[in-house]
Design a protein around this nucleic acid. Structure first.
Lengths: 228, 228
DNA sequence: TCTTGTGAAACGCTTCACAGCC
DNA sequence: GGCTGTGAAGCGTTTCACAAGA
């Protein structure tokens, strides 16, 4: 229990802190000892001033005229985001997407471990995905309680997502990442983040189409090149 | 004749329009002919007034005192988002996540068809995923030009994402959905949307931890920090 | 000089309240 | 009476400009 003060850090900032942390890991692997806000911002794809403002929520992190210590900043960010402690997660719905997530090394390397994988398909139950055996969805409550998981990931079809969500919440899960294309309703005190992959594509397509209809603003657009 | 004006619709609004469109499809399947902003907003997980403001970007869509025609609003939204016309997409990197996306029916039902799947692994090349045969990544330029695809999806490891991106752009792709955990740099006129799954989980975990540190529920969020 | 840290302005999005129309 | 459409207020985030400090 260090003096980590939970000053309300804006959610948008938290998301970027996670990105900075990953970039710093890469810099550390390259043997770098210091980095400036400009370089770090460039690698993270953000504005340098914005990066400094983000870091200012953690108090002074750098040295003026010099930059940031890679190791020092990394430790600071890691602690602010919850430390290296392992976080037990359960995932429900091992279709294509669920299996991909359960086997995604990007999670494990950040302290997230899937301690429970649940599916309703008898053909999937019993198989091993990402080092964990899939169990029948009937055992959901037992698994959540046994593992004390507070984070749940839903990758089921939309039709059953709400009932799965209800069961997760009843069993003690307070944070849910929802990939099913429905709006989940949860009681106060439970947080849901939604990731909607087809919406992402649709937004991209909209912008793409919008750009195609309007002629190039300056000479920014290259000739498309496809003639017949 | 088609007086649909592509007035700059906020990006956040575009994302929600796609959600409304999906909800409307469900209502149509249920045989509903009309719906109010309240009901539609509830199903989409948003504020009713916000929904009406979103729709206001398309001009008047409903009937005061009555609500919205399900079929009429659906047609309007569909057209605003780019219509039903099929959009050719290419996807590079058929690991677990890439395969899941290529086989995701949620895309196909919205007019997105993967006309090119590319991978560098000889063991993956030649297999069929979601009705399309995987081809060697060397053929990237040829596939993009042959299909006139303007949308690309990158699900490769981070190390090769930038080079894949460069090749997509050079071949004519102007809109990219990036799942690799790196910031891609692209010339002006090209749009990149990034989806970072491990960041989503990390933000969720941060909020989860933050809530765990403050024992009291709900109302206690405001009272932290002030000294009398 | 160089770079961080930060108030303040600027921006975009959300929420509210109510006018307008059925 | 009921519901939509919308100006205006409110809020959070981003950007700017510069003071502070190694």
């Amino acid at each position: 229990m260090t003096q980590s003060r939970p000053r309300n850090i804006p959610e948008a900032t938290v998301a970027r802190l996670a990105v900075y942390l990953r970039v710093l890991a890469g810099l550390a692997d390259d043997g770098r000892s210091h980095v400036s806000s400009g370089e770090l911002a460039s690698a993270a794809g953000v504005n340098p001033a914005g990066l400094r403002k983000d870091l200012s929520h953690l108090g002074p992190c750098g040295v003026r005229g010099v930059g940031y210590s890679v190791a020092g900043l990394r430790a600071r960010l890691s602690e602010a985001l919850g430390g290296e402690r392992s976080r037990p997660c359960v995932l429900v719905g091992l279709g294509r997407l669920g299996s991909a997530l359960a086997d995604y090394t990007g999670f494990a390397s950040r302290g997230f471990t899937f301690v429970g994988l649940l599916d309703s398909d008898p053909a999937t139950v019993g198989t091993r995905v990402g080092g964990c055996t899939v169990r029948p969805v009937e055992e959901l409550e037992a698994v959540v309680r046994a593992t004390a998981a507070t984070i749940g990931v839903i990758t089921t079809p939309a039709e059953v997502a709400q009932s799965v969500c209800d069961r997760l919440v009843a069993a003690g899960v307070r944070s849910i990442l929802n990939f099913a294309p429905v709006a989940l309703s949860v009681p106060a005190g439970v947080d849901v983040r939604k990731v909607d992959l087809s919406v992402e594509l649709q937004v991209l397509a909209f912008l793409d189409q919008q750009r195609a209809q309007v002629p190039a603003p300056a000479a920014a657009l290259r000739t498309a090149g496809s003639l017949g």
